[in-house]
Design a protein around this nucleic acid. Sequence first.
DNA 1: CAGCTGACAGATTTCAATATCTGTCAGCTG
DNA 2: CAGCTGACAGATATTGAAATCTGTCAGCTG
Lengths: 196, 196
Amino acid sequence: MAATSEILTAERILEATEEVLRRHGPAKATVVDVARALGVSHGSVYRHFRTKAALREAVTKRWLDRTSDALSDIVAATDRDPESRLRDWLAALFEAKRRKAGGDPELFATYMVLTAENGEAVAEHVDDLTGQLTEIVRAGVESGTFTSADPAATARAVFQATGRFHDPGYAREWEQPGVEGEFTAVVDLVVRGLRA
Amino acid sequence: MAATSEILTAERILEATEEVLRRHGPAKATVVDVARALGVSHGSVYRHFRTKAALREAVTKRWLDRTSDALSDIVAATDRDPESRLRDWLAALFEAKRRKAGGDPELFATYMVLTAENGEAVAEHVDDLTGQLTEIVRAGVESGTFTSADPAATARAVFQATGRFHDPGYAREWEQPGVEGEFTAVVDLVVRGLRA
DNA sequence: CAGCTGACAGATTTCAATATCTGTCAGCTG
DNA sequence: CAGCTGACAGATATTGAAATCTGTCAGCTG
């Protein structure tokens, strides 16, 4: 067992947990399974995570953060004009979610369960994303393309108005014909509403 | 038993079913319960509704139609300007849903279950509502207040963009402080996007 | 002695036996 | 004879006993 030759770290436990969740699903994945995958006793896992809930929350955070990170490049491209950055950002978010949902539906369902039980982590993730949006909106206001008395509030409104294209609850509809057009229609409406 | 003195109609069965659902919830409400409430045998209920699913669907339709009907007055007020009719319509929809969700959470949860199992009825209801919105948008385009190449598509976009304030899935958030402001922010954004 | 193990108590889940419900229909009733 | 009843078969839900899991901790090990 090569696994036992390395030190047991939180990171390794999280990786093993993701694997166990992928294999067994959220309902049947146990701490004992995770320990077995690592070749250690389950007591050792509890040395790094106080409870099973804490372990699942950490996995959830990691997963959500991977999405936020993927979008931050668009926010950072301050040389590009805000309107197309906004459109790209929204399209990238939609595309990322849709690929996750459609590509591996079971794994996506697993993370739906995890996010449902970790409202705190999800709230942080939403704050993270609206924070990114706020930067783009603020850039737009400064360059005179957008109007907004309160960029943070406006960013939240943009995020909420496009919810149907990133909220996992709507995942079923992302595969239906015509979504692409519906997405464009909503984004156009929102961008028009933003313009100075 | 006064009830048995009247003829058994589909209407009376629907009323009794609503009552049974209110009392027992969606999981425990049985056809036998409905029959007992009416003072008849359950075989008689099957004379009017082929299956339990059909009965539940009919109850769901009735409930959804009551919401649509309440909004149609605003659509019909063609003497008022389209922008304020749109704002009123969206506010009335939000308010109606919020009252249902907050006023009797258990009953609302019951109808959440019913709508989840009757996608067909819900789709019709959404078509109904976007149809109403389309009329308002079209009136706005005709009077020159709004721009839209395709009022039906625009109406759908408006409906989807405001989903957070009428989709039952978000009901938990309707009670939190600040929703009122979030609602206004989204509606303002959408209305600005609509203006010519 | 820092990190890990594994036995343990209480909580949770599983499973199979039991009870209830759905949908049908032959026959009753007014 | 139109409308209703209630017994019935198969499907679904409930229940409680047995199995498994979570979280702890005294003691082992390198």
